[in-house]
Design a protein around this nucleic acid. Structure first.
Length: 474
RNA sequence: CGGGGUGUGGCGCAGUCUGGCUAGCGCGCGUGCUUUGGGAGCACGAAGUCGCGGGUUCAAAUCCCGCCACCCCGACCA
């Protein structure tokens, strides 16, 4: 079977090869759409579970809103419709009859959510409303890419309503922190986080916060966003409540989401030329046991030992015995490496004789013989160690790819020749931001809270300026 | 939307320029035997309206006209 493309030679093809060959997803018959296959979906399910627990732990409840949104709803918030108009897919007909009003396949649900919030919110006692939904959305993007940007994608979208701006901002920032924690502790993906510039802000938001990861090719990837919506949607949908003093006030809002794009981010964060590398906390299978069968050996005893080992692991981790007899051990090694299973255990006649198993780590490829009775404990320790070391390695790469530039020439050179995040002084004017983006295709990824003060903008030379991270992004 | 490319068994391709015999090759798939510590070998076998529609011709995967779809690179986006 053909090898996957080399990461260093054709990054884009390498990414596609891993997604396809690890059987995470496949192209569907409709442009830009994909089928998420069991291995990809199992990873998404693991992400969902972890995130859902975090949302519940911060007081949110799950709901479900419909897929179809009356077109007029989208049009109620001017900036919102302007932002989404070009990518909305609209249903206009039932059978052969045209619909009274066209229905949009939700590109995001703020409008229909707020149409309903109007019914449910009258008093300060009804607030806050902390809802989340797991759903699919449709955006007819110009350039699809498996997991990273598909026409239809899965995500969660939180929609919350609050009595005060302070409380809503606090919520948006709390969720940003949830995302940051999830990215780092579960995906082992270090991120930059902060506010977006006005140019990069979500259509209809006052403030957008985001986490930004750095892929192995030096491009940034927006991995999650949390928006403070102010009273924009409350005003568009006339959602008012009576406060403690009996005054009518518009409600303050947030919305926030992460999507199946995270699966793509995961692939791009840790994988290598042998395929996917999964952080143990998100791996659908932690340990695969490959029995090594031989014509001259007692295969029944080897298989029994493999299943016994699996039982001893079963309580602690997800384990699978690959006892297929139609493919060779070498084939299995390659396949499970391609799929990113963190630990492989080989049990053959030699091991049986020595009372040991051979343990192989996916990230380092190191093979270690371990006594049978110690295997469970040692493997658990290895999994924990691997989770940490994947993060450490990714963090090291991120840090190594955060560079400063002080002049615009130096900036251009670094963006062009080196990539990564380039921290450079910016005065805050949209004109300078746009010029950089036009000339270098690099954008300001976020405005970190602790951004260093600088005397002059690298573009216009005016002060005061702050040092902010630019990058080319997916 | 601009640029490039591709459509031929499940996958990857050759064949198209220069029309012609039974449309080939590799992988995969099925059966059997031998194998199995880094993508096994042999034997036999199944599987193709050549993207769609029209046209030219004795004859079209191949030439002509029209259409469609998907992929890749850019601008937009999670």
């Amino acid at each position: 079977m053909a090898k996957i493309a080399k990461r260093s030679e054709d990054y884009s093809q390498w990414y596609l090869d891993i997604v396809m060959r690890a059987e995470m997803a496949d192209y569907a018959p409709v442009r830009g759409c994909m089928v998420i296959r069991p291995w990809g979906y199992a990873i998404w399910e693991r992400m969902q579970r972890a995130l859902d627990d975090m949302f519940k732990a911060t007081g949110h409840q799950n709901v479900y809103f419909p897929l179809l949104i009356p077109q007029s709803f989208l049009e109620k918030e001017a900036e919102h419709i302007e932002g989404f108009a070009l990518e909305c897919v609209t249903v206009t007909r039932v059978g052969k009859e045209p619909l009274e009003e066209p229905l949009v396949l939700r590109p995001t649900s703020e409008t229909i959510v707020w149409a309903m919030y109007k019914k449910w919110i009258q008093s300060w006692r009804d607030l806050p409303l902390l809802y989340n939904q797991w759903a699919n959305v449709v955006r007819w993007e110009m350039r699809p890419r498996l997991f990273l940007r598909t026409t239809e994608f899965l995500w969660q979208e939180g929609h919350t309503a609050h009595a005060t701006a302070e409380e809503a901002i606090e919520e948006a920032e709390r969720i940003l922190e949830v995302y940051r924690t999830f990215a780092q502790e579960w995906m082992a993906m270090p991120v930059l986080s902060g506010r977006k510039t006005d140019a990069e802000r979500f259509a209809g938001a006052e403030t957008t916060y985001a986490i930004e990861g750095l892929m192995q090719d030096g491009k940034a990837l927006q991995a999650g966003t949390s928006h403070y919506l102010g009273q924009n949607f409350a005003k568009a949908f006339d959602v008012q409540f009576q406060n403690r003093d009996g005054d009518l006030q518009y409600v303050y809002a947030t919305s926030w989401g992460v999507s199946t794009r995270l699966v793509g981010a995961l692939v791009m964060s840790h994988s290598d030329d042998d395929g996917l590398v999964l952080p143990p906390k998100l791996a659908p299978i932690h340990v695969v046991i490959v029995p090594i069968l031989k014509a001259e050996a007692d295969n029944a005893a080897i298989l029994a030992a493999a299943h016994r080992a699996a039982e001893s692991f079963a309580e602690a981790v997800e384990v699978k015995v690959d006892d297929r007899d139609n493919v060779s051990p070498g084939w299995k090694f390659n396949e499970w490496e391609l799929k990113g299973v963190p630990v492989r255990i080989e049990i053959g006649p030699k091991d049986l004789a020595k009372g040991q198993v051979v343990v192989v780590r996916r990230d380092t490829g190191r093979k270690t013989p371990i006594a049978q009775e110690e295997a469970t404990a040692r493997v658990q320790a290895i999994l924990e160690e691997m989770q940490g070391s994947l993060f450490a390695k990714a963090k090291e790469r991120l840090d190594a790819n955060c560079r400063n530039a002080d002049s615009y020439d130096q900036f251009k050179h670094t963006i062009e020749e080196v990539g990564g995040f380039v921290f450079a002084p910016w005065c805050g004017r949209p004109e300078c931001e746009a010029q950089v983006s036009d000339e270098t295709k690099a954008t300001i990824r976020c405005l970190p809270d602790e951004a260093e003060a600088c005397p002059a903008c690298m573009v216009c030379g005016n002060g005061p300026a702050r040092r902010v991270p630019f990058a080319r992004a997916y």
